[in-house]
Simulated scan of single mutants.
Amino acid sequence: MIDWVRKFLYRIFCAIALLVSVYLVVDFMISGTFELRVFIMFLLMVIVILWGIVDWRKNYILVQQKETELRMYQMYIQPLEELVKEIRAKQHEFDNHINAILNMHLTVDNYDELVARQSEYITEAVKENDGRQYLPLLKISDKVLAGFLYSKIVRAPGYIQTELEVRNLEIISGISEHHLIEIIGTLVDNAYEACTEELNRVIMILDSENDKVIFEVKNRMRNVKLEDIGRFFEKGYSTKSDDGKRGFGLYNAKVLTETHGGEITVSTDFIDERNYICFKVAV
């Protein structure tokens, strides 16, 4: 039988059983044939039915969470596999670069020119392999989070420079996978949306301490008033266009974080003589 049909029939059965129980109790009381034993029997029946509904609801929510996590796993493992393929391709390119550098002396007989050409070649090769900073994502224990972050980074606009620092490879947290992705996704999306071709640098830091995930994201910003920063987590507040659909992401992230005993904060930072806004969550 189809799952939703079975659930629907179960709900109908519970509703009918409750109605019948209430009807019989009321009928006994009106007719004067009420007995304590009958009342206790119906009371136990109602308790069993209510307990079954509550237990079914808990199991249903748990199954839904597991299905959501499975879909997320399938969704974000693919970007991680693409990163693996890219690394393998880069390895072949690296081997070719090494061979080119080692054999460069065969075409250059002047020492100073050889050093200059090798330095120039190495500099260009390093520029082409800037993606190497994302390699630690392959080593962290949370593969879904790794795939999610990598997918966000590679899909960001080309003018944005993303720097990632992984401080702990063992990512431990008591929060469910999809809730963690929801929180971190909100922070990453906000950082990227705030970027322009001029303010185009985003810094991410991933850590884990005391059985909590610690994630920081920093992005360049123009002057922001302190009172505005203090309102970032208010429901409905947004620095973007006010169309009634914004201002809920950070609020929801804060509620979700605090529900799981975590903490989310916002502050300002001064890096390389530039102003940055920093969001940090520990959950």
Rank of each mutant, 00 (worst) to 15 (best):
K58R: 10
F215W: 00
Y121N: 02
L9N: 04
I183A: 05
T268W: 02
Y134P: 00
K225R: 12
G185N: 04
E35S: 14
H92F: 13
V5C: 03
I47R: 02
Q118C: 11
A116E: 15
E209Q: 10
I214G: 11
S267C: 01
V154Q: 01
Y237G: 05
A156R: 14
H92K: 01
M104C: 00
D211E: 12
V281W: 09
E120W: 08
L206V: 10
V22I: 02
E209I: 15
V217R: 05
K152P: 11
V281C: 03
I12D: 08
L102G: 12
E216S: 04
D112M: 01
L43P: 07
T162L: 00
R167Y: 10
G262C: 13
D243L: 11
Q118S: 14
D243W: 13
N200Q: 08
S238R: 06
D228P: 11
R222D: 15
Y73R: 07
E128L: 07
D211G: 07
F39E: 08
G249T: 11
E86F: 05
Q133W: 02
F28Y: 07
I171Y: 04
G131H: 07
P136E: 03
L50P: 01
F215P: 04
Q133A: 06
I183L: 03
E128I: 04
F42T: 06
R246H: 11
M41Y: 14
V188A: 00
Y121M: 01
E81V: 04
P157C: 02
I160V: 12
E198D: 04
E86G: 07
N59R: 14
V154E: 09
K254D: 06
E170C: 07
K139C: 06
A17V: 13
I229F: 00
E170L: 13
N190I: 09
Q91S: 07
L138N: 08
Y276R: 04
N190G: 13
I181V: 07
S119I: 15
N200M: 00
E182D: 04
K66H: 03
T268Y: 10
G261M: 03
